[in-house]
């Protein structure tokens, strides 16, 4: 376990020194700029737009980090052969994979925490400058703590996407891994449609395929409760719990698969 944490620590340090901090700066600038620009528009809707924008940006920036840096951590390491130095130390290949995953997860948690702080700071500013009439028009209070549920689920989704990226990069090139991961991300979000698709088609074979895909592909739609949160609808604790449980199980499957492939690989 200590070995895994040492690998994770180095992966964290490496990714934090790479491009991750820029995304946080861009996010903060975006949030602040949006709050000023949209303040010029009609009152009432601006809070909703800020929330939409902020939560979407967290999700997208997190995705960028998960995909590009996540892939860099393993497949770039294989391609540039730094893996030769590491795997000849007393480190098993499983420890290597798990360490890299934990390192990147730590990066994402730190990154998302900073973005959450920036997000709430902007909302606090909106709240303090709003009049009582404007406040009455809001679907949900500005500093509604339920938004944290959406952010926790974003984190869960990013943890899953990172595991997908790591899985692909355990056997394919960085570019291919990035494309495959983004492809699965898109598919994962269309997954909700797949479920409805199943209800619409008549052929049992097609319905069966749709159902299989629905259950086997990473199902990312349930992680998206941003609309609920923005409209002040409740997010059931059971939904949160089951979705996070699903994330944990699916991540475990991906990591085990990644280890299974990685430990049999030749490094030329």
């Amino acid at each position: 376990m200590r070995t895994i944490w040492i690998v994770a620590g180095a992966a964290f340090k490496e990714s934090v020194r790479d491009r991750v901090p820029y995304t946080m700066v861009v996010f903060a600038v975006l949030m602040i700029a949006a709050s000023f620009l949209i303040g010029e528009l009609t009152a009432g809707q601006d809070l909703k737009i800020i929330k939409d924008l902020g939560l979407a940006a967290m999700s997208i920036f997190g995705l960028g980090i998960a995909v590009f840096i996540g892939i860099g951590l393993v497949s770039k390491e294989v391609e540039r052969k730094s893996v030769h130095g590491l795997l000849t130390k007393p480190v098993t290949r499983a420890q290597f994979i798990l360490g890299k995953y934990l390192g990147l997860l730590t990066t994402l948690v730190v990154n998302l925490s900073v973005m959450t702080l920036a997000y709430y700071a902007v909302l606090l500013y909106m709240d303090s400058t709003a009049t009582a009439a404007v406040r009455a028009s809001w679907a949900a209070p500005a500093l509604d703590p339920r938004q944290l549920a959406a952010i926790v689920l974003i984190m869960g989704e990013l943890a899953l996407v990172t595991a997908v990226a790591l899985f692909f990069s355990s056997f394919s090139s960085p570019l291919l891994s990035a494309m495959l991961t983004l492809g699965l991300w898109v598919a994962g979000h269309f997954n909700g449609d797949l479920r409805q698709f199943e209800q619409v088609v008549d052929q049992p074979a097609v319905a069966w395929i749709a159902r299989t895909l629905y259950y086997l592909l990473p199902n990312l739609a349930p992680f998206n409760v941003r609309a609920e949160v923005v409209y002040g609808m409740p997010v059931l604790a059971s939904h949160l719990g089951f979705t996070l449980l699903y994330a944990a199980v699916y991540i475990a499957a991906l990591l085990v698969a990644a280890v299974a492939i990685f430990r049999r690989r030749d490094f030329k």
Binding site: Y215, S238, H239, Y250
Partner: peptide, 15 residues
């Protein structure tokens, strides 16, 4: 993971 999804989907519809 399929089991978890089946249980979750009983109480959840996309909003």
């Amino acid at each position: 993971s399929i089991g978890v999804q089946v249980v979750r989907d009983r109480g959840w519809q996309p909003y």
